[in-house]
Amino acid sequence: MMDIFQYEFMRNALLAILLASIACGIVGVYVVVKRIVFISGGIAHASFGGIGLGYFLGINPIWGLIPFSITSALVMGLISKRTKIPEDTAIGILWALGVSLGIIFIGLSPGYAPDLFSYLFGNILTVTSADLMVMLVLDLVIIKVVFLFYKEFLALSFDDEFATVVGIPTEKLYLLLLCLIALTVVVLMRVVGIILVIALLTIPAAISKQFTANLKKMMFISVLLSAIFGIMGLVLSYQFNLASGATIVMVSGIGFMLSWLYKYKYKKCKIQVNR
């Protein structure tokens, strides 16, 4: 099995999975505990507008994606915090607007967009060294920010109102957290594509939440699980010639079901023992 890694594109794919695991393992924990799955899905989808913008301007779509995903994160955050529009309504609207904008941009761009599919659903076998560099830098930014604001992010996620009362600038930190999600979308785009990003932002963290009550441990377990699912998905997709992003998500989904079944059975046993 290891001989598949003799090819450079497979080694790049493996590195991409490891780098993606760091981002989604750490940020995914906040997405799950703060219950901001829907806004994360919204940011991921709306950022499709950035890919369209990249095509339209004739640059590497990733340079359209980064500013666009951060902007959509900030706009969603500000609208949900500062206006009386219900948060989920605002997210739903911006989600669709971003995607529409992307489609219009691509329609206006000259020629055909050949690798559009790989941005939507990921194509890990085409990851270049330049992509890996971008992913590494974004990972370092995410780690640094989480390291600096770990306590504040924990307080904010646990009890937003109390955090405000003790004097934490909660709105700014919330927007910062949404920006981290936007960056994670960029990191994950090559691996699973922006449509499937939400799976890797939620599944590993949701599994690890069942097994630990400590946020840091949860992050480590999530990173580890993301890497395991990613590698398993990569190998399976190579062996059976399946779409890599979708296979990784399927493996993660099965992993979630197994962990849930295990936990469920374990709990049942415990109740019986207690009786």
Binding site: L148, K151, A155, F158, F162, A163, A213, N214, L215
Partner: peptide, 23 residues
């Protein structure tokens, strides 16, 4: 969310935040 991963100790300490003592 009763499953929120935070201990009693961590909850109490959050009360000490917010005085510009970042990092």
């Amino acid at each position: 969310d009763r499953g929120f991963p935070i201990s009693v100790w961590e909850v109490v300490l959050t009360g000490r935040l917010g005085k510009g003592k970042y990092y």
